[in-house]
Amino acid sequence: MSEDKGKEYKRRSAGQWAVAWRRFKRNKSGLAGSAFVGAFFILAFYGLFAAPYPGRSFACLYQGCANLPPFQNWAHPLGTETSGIDVWSEIAHGAAGDLYVGVAATLISVVIGLLVGAVAGYRGGIAASLLLGLTQVFFVLPILIIILLFAKIFLFLVAAGLGLNLIVFALAIFGWPVIAFIARGEILRIRELEFVQASRALGASNTRILFRHIVPNMLSPIIVIASLSVAGNILTEVIISFLGFGDATASTWGNLLFDGFQYVRSSWWVSFFPGIAVVLCVLGFNLLGDGLSDALNPRLRE
């Protein structure tokens, strides 16, 4: 009898994340998105450890298999470039490069954005007004153009060994204000809620309120934005490299599309297949973001 009582005491209602997961499992497009994202991570590992050719390898130029059309020689399923790069192998390498750029830039901007947003939202005052002003500037700044300039100016750092990290830094520097803006809004909303007031009345410290109550509750919009921001970062990387402002020695889809545009008259497949990879990968992160947003939105909860 006493055992039963103990059990009953332990039973809890499903937590926030369990509910979200249950809702996400029922969302077909969200699941499709996570499947795409998962497939591209597998492709990236294939590129890193098992691809038939190393990144940006011109081997085919010497083996006489350059400029092959797709689906003819199964050693080169998606064809080869005039310069000898195997398209399938390079798409796999590009998956690793682009996922690295997308995820790393997003992580950096989320960390900076959360810190700045937390200070501005919780403290208010000058920090908040500065942040608001800065985000206003970032909303009208032609960010892609500024990033292109940035990449051009610091091109020497790419050669000095920074490589793809230069694009990561550029994307992070111009990506965090949006996240800080959202984080600040969430903090302003949450800190006025009753349960926060209640714990303040019980004498909880500022740090405890911030990390135990506010941060867990603001995570869901940040996760959604992060997923969409990975998609946006990959698209931006593709444009930067396509225009020839990136690291030309790195394996990315943008560089492959840059090559494809040089050979657009003779080899359509060099433009077609990497583009499909970009669309599916970005689509995956967008669907994942939409699915998460539906699953985590309490207003849509039945």
Partner: peptide, 12 residues
Amino acid sequence: GVSMPTFWLGVM
């Protein structure tokens, strides 16, 4: 449409 690089659609 929102997942597509604009220029790539142009190239196609």
